[in-house]
């Protein structure tokens, strides 16, 4: 599902070595936490996995797409197999909750009927029934993040990548969101969560990959945050 082999990434402008001969594999159906302190290389890994940047060395493959050699015009097709959730929600302010989710389906060319059936189902799944006509700014942070989850989920992605999804949420809402992601995982979607919230990671018995200085320092199924600040 996700495969990184000997991947190195140096930012040309700053000369920073963001990933150093990093290799990892994530299988279909897994729930994985990617943890590490600020500047450890987590965001770079997300950017590499979403095709936002290309690695200087090594091979990356996600959902069957070879990101090492992918052409720019093939990227949209690849991204439609992904669901991405960001810390700052990244919702379109002037679209309603419904339209923010439906818009992702329009992108893939879904029919009106499919959209009418799928969007309410996904909104119900994330607990946003009755909020369809609201604008993002009329919702709480937790609700906005659930809209982002619904948008990530609506096209039935094989992999969901969540980049610090709980960064703007209080502990209760963070836990709620993680439970939602766990539920999505149980329904068959592979989930990769990037975070630095130790308590949250430790509350779930999942695989945890720890990164430091662009390298993996631990990768275990014990569900514990290995990095200690």
């Amino acid at each position: 599902m996700v495969s990184m082999k000997d991947v190195s990434m140096v930012y040309k402008t700053s000369g920073t070595l963001a990933t150093d001969h990093l290799s990892l594999n994530i299988d279909e159906g897994e729930f994985v936490f990617l943890v590490g302190p600020s500047g450890s290389g987590k965001t770079t890994i997300i950017k590499l996995l979403t095709g936002e940047i290309k690695a200087n060395e090594g091979e990356i493959s996600v959902n069957g797409f070879d990101l090492t050699h992918i052409r720019r015009r093939r990227l949209p097709k690849f991204r439609r197999t992904l669901g991405v959730i960001f810390q700052d929600f990244r919702l379109i302010d002037d679209k309603t909750v419904y339209d923010n989710v439906a818009f992702a389906m329009h992108v893939v060319g879904a029919s009106k009927r499919e959209i009418r059936e799928r969007v309410p189902y996904v909104l119900k799944l994330v607990g946003l029934e009755g909020r369809e006509k609201r604008l993002p700014q009329e919702l709480s942070g937790g609700e906005q993040q659930r809209v982002a989850v619904a948008r990530a989920l609506v096209n039935r992605p094989r992999l969901i990548i969540a980049d610090e999804p709980t960064g703007n949420l209080d502990p209760a809402k963070s836990l709620e969101l993680m439970l939602l992601l766990q539920k999505i995982n149980e329904l068959g979607t592979t989930v990769l969560v990037v975070t630095h919230e130790k308590e949250l990671v430790n509350a779930f018995a999942k695989r945890v990959i720890s990164i430091e200085n662009g390298s993996i320092v631990s990768d275990g199924m014990d569900g514990y945050y290995a990095y200690e600040a």
Partner: peptide, 16 residues
């Protein structure tokens, strides 16, 4: 700009 970045992230083509 942000709106365009979101569109790109959900897989919208440039033409879209």
């Amino acid at each position: 700009k942000e709106e365009i970045a979101i569109m790109k992230m959900v897989g919208a083509s440039n033409a879209f």
